[in-house]
Design a protein around this nucleic acid. Structure first.
Length: 421
RNA sequence: GGUGGGGUGGCAGAGUGGUCAAAUGCGACGGUUUCGAAAACCGUUUCCGGUUUACCGGAGCGCGAGUUCGAGUCUCGCCCCCACCGCCA
């Protein structure tokens, strides 16, 4: 949610942002109109209520017939007006929720992901004197990934990690958890389902684009989280935190569930885009100062990079353009790893500063010098199982085995994955 | 799933239809006092609108609806917490 006070003072602040994000500018004009209506109604409702309170206060013991008549009159008037006020408010809110966060000045302007700008490249593409396989073919050969069987049992976009594949997956997650915990983050294994109201209240599903993104269980009024962010960030909803706890840093592990509706036919091969994957995520709350939260974003990006570098992967960092920026984000860095088997760079994580956009909806505040202010909230992938897929493809050898990165060996207890057949 | 109890301000805890925005206690912040501190005293300690220094009004007692001239207080639905029983990884 944008800052309504800023919007009221200077609605044009949001005009450029809407244009750059390919959103209709009409949103803004509608919002201004509905806000005016809302405030006009609010004024008359509050006036009536003031009268009502006056009468109520003047009653001593039993009310006189006159007082009752006056009260009834006000009550009738109020009923109609209050309904209108409520309608105006929800209409206003629907539009305000559609207005995205204002991108930072250094976010490139662009239509879609093709407008993202590579700002850093680490490592180089590995050279093979054979044709490298992709992780699905290699995984099947080595008996560590099985998508076919999962297709039978669960359907498309599911898979099994098996044997050394399963161990490697858990080793990667645990490696990230341990590393980041050692950096002073609090460790979380959060609930995998949240109440649908929570999801709604957090503003994730209010975006029409996300409506079909979640698995829900209507009988129990629950939805599966699509990232641990969704049950960790709301941990502090409706709280006023003391200044001393900041920055408040969490590292969490969870499976993530996504319906991937609207992605039919995209990334069908392999485990790159599945309905359920594992992820270690960082969620950080900072004091409401862009200098502080922007610096924190870079710090989180460096942690994400450090892990990929520990594994020895070649990757690029992209500054995502306005057209590719999710609604709550002020800025987003994507990290794309090289997948030699797929002969492509694929996203393995992203790192975002949402500033106070989420905090407003969540009502998470900090008390500074007696004043309450909305905090800044950031999220970043630490590692997801796409990193494991990259490891599998990048460190395959001619004899069809996979060399495990040094830093993981004490966790896996093996240094190579060889064929059992 | 069954039975019983309960959700009030930063915390604890009164209040059961009309000066209740809410007694009382504790805490935090600001001020007075002090060489400094403690104590004491005064003020503040949610959100919104209008006016804009200090002013006025409204909302807010888990959430939502209802009854009433008037609801923290009554009715209904929902959510959550606690205790015991049952089931169970």
């Amino acid at each position: 949610m944008i800052d309504i006070n800023l919007f009221r003072k200077n609605p044009d602040t949001f005009r450029k942002s809407l244009i750059n994000r390919n959103k209709p500018v009409k949103l803004l004009d509608d919002a201004i109109k509905f806000d005016t209506d809302y405030r006009t109604l609010l004024k008359s409702v509050e006036g009536l209520r003031a009268n009502q309170n006056l009468i109520s206060k003047s009653v001593k013991g039993q009310p006189t017939p006159e007082q009752i008549t006056q009260g009834k009159e006000i009550k009738t008037k109020l009923k109609g007006l209050e309904e209108k006020l409520k309608a105006a408010e929800s209409e206003l809110n629907l539009i305000l929720e559609e207005i995205p966060n204002t991108p930072a000045a250094d976010v490139p302007v662009g239509k879609d992901e093709t407008g993202n700008v590579v700002i850093k490249t680490v490592g180089t593409k590995p050279k093979f004197d054979f044709t490298p396989l992709d992780h699905q073919d290699l995984g099947l050969k080595l008996n560590i990934i099985d998508k076919n069987k999962a297709g039978e049992l669960s359907g498309a976009r599911f898979g099994y990690y098996q044997n050394e594949g399963a161990i490697l997956e858990m080793a990667i997650m645990f490696y990230a958890i341990k590393k980041i915990t050692a950096k002073g983050f609090q460790t979380m294994l959060p609930p995998l389902m949240v109440k649908s109201q929570t999801e709604w209240g957090c503003g994730y599903t209010s975006n029409k684009n996300l409506m079909g993104a979640y698995y829900s269980i209507p009988d129990d009024n629950l939805v599966f989280i699509s990232s641990s962010e969704h049950s960790v960030v709301p941990y502090h909803q409706n709280e006023i935190l003391p200044e001393s706890v900041f920055p408040l840093k969490y590292v969490n592990f969870s499976p993530c569930f996504r319906r991937e509706s609207g992605t039919y036919g995209k990334d069908m091969k392999g485990m790159l885009r599945v309905h359920h994957f594992n992820k270690v995520e960082m969620n950080v709350f900072t004091l409401p100062d862009l200098k502080i939260s922007d610096a924190m974003q870079l710090e989180m990006l460096s942690v994400e990079e450090e892990i990929l570098s520990d594994f020895g992967l070649h990757y690029q960092v992209l500054n995502c353009c306005t057209g590719d920026l999710p609604q709550p984000n002020r800025r987003m860095y994507d990290i794309n790893c090289w997948f030699p088997g797929l002969d492509a760079y694929k996203e393995t994580g992203s790192c975002s500063n949402c500033a106070d956009y989420q905090a407003r909806r969540l009502n998470t505040k900090v008390k500074i010098n007696g004043k309450n202010e909305f905090v800044h909230i950031l999220n970043s992938t630490a590692v997801s199982d796409r990193a494991m897929l990259a490891i599998i493809e990048n460190f395959q050898t001619k004899d069809g085995s996979i060399t495990i990165p040094d830093c993981l060996r004490s966790l896996t207890d093996f240094s190579v994955i060889k064929s059992h057949r």
